[in-house]
Design a protein around this nucleic acid. Structure first.
Lengths: 149, 149
DNA sequence: CTTGATGCAAAGGATTTGCACAAAT
DNA sequence: ATTTGTGCAAATCCTTTGCATCAAG
């Protein structure tokens, strides 16, 4: 299951003449097992016991980002990364709660459809081809609202 | 015309017990006369001959941002700022061209309506209150596409 | 006159780079 | 064997801070 995904990502790396090193495999495994958003420091901390250095984390983030394996989102002036491959995680609409700092990711067809329409409209109306989008809502999340009452 | 806007912004500053200093006035004038997106360095360069320091630019960006006078958007790992007040500029949907680096801002009712619907859906469905949103599309802009052919 | 804002210089934090060594292909 | 990747340390870049001075209310 997850093994297939690793294999698939490894194939992409090899097709682009990147070598399959231990740090890269560890990073990919981490992205596959964690579905939340990780910043470079967190990635480093989770796998440094397997021996990896922070510069290598940064260098491989660049590689994975260029290949479309991961996606970068800037939330609250911090770059966070998540898997970009595999259909369930293609939407990338985020909500950042000002109060608790939590990042919620919406994986909802309705929301997704709105975005697709938006994209199609822009392409038709202005001729700008949308390859990617980053959407970050912020405000107060439902949990913090409950605590207010 | 523009004078009224300056007065309005000055009023907000004073209501919040901020002093009306020369650097602040210069920065506000700059935001009013330029409708594009400025990074801290650019703001500094445009008005440094009027004597202002880079730390002051950063400090006042914070003040203006907190008061809702300007809006921050992270595009391509760079924070850029633009006026947030005055209705014509409340929308903030950006397109960043990977090729030429240009930032296009969409000011189009259709596009806003999509966003408003999105926001209403999220609030109704999940209870997360959206106070703000940052939308950055990226891809290839219409001008770069023409040059390709 | 009192308080808050500024400039300067220095500190801080995140990210990148040079280089010698190590590990993939 | 050749090339690419890595770790380390240092450099760089952007942003923030401490502090003495200045200016606004």
């Amino acid at each position: 299951m997850m093994d297939n995904k690793i294999k698939e990502i490894e194939k992409i790396l090899q097709e682009h003449e990147y070598k399959l090193t231990k740090p890269r495999i560890k990073m990919i495994e981490l992205f596959l097992e964690r579905s939340d958003h990780l910043c470079p420091e967190e990635i480093y901390n989770k796998i440094k016991h397997e021996s990896i250095s922070l510069p290598t984390v940064y260098r491989n983030i660049l590689v994975f980002k260029d290949l479309g394996i991961i996606k970068e989102t800037n939330i609250n002036n911090e770059n966070v990364y998540e898997l970009n491959m595999f259909s369930e995680k293609r939407l990338h609409m985020h909500f950042h709660c000002k109060r608790c700092g939590q990042i919620i990711e919406y994986n909802n067809r309705e929301i997704f459809n709105h975005m697709i329409k938006q994209q199609q409209y822009i392409e038709a109306q202005f001729g700008d081809i949308v390859e990617n989008y980053s959407v970050v809502f912020d405000g107060i999340c439902h949990l913090c609202r409950q605590q207010e009452e």
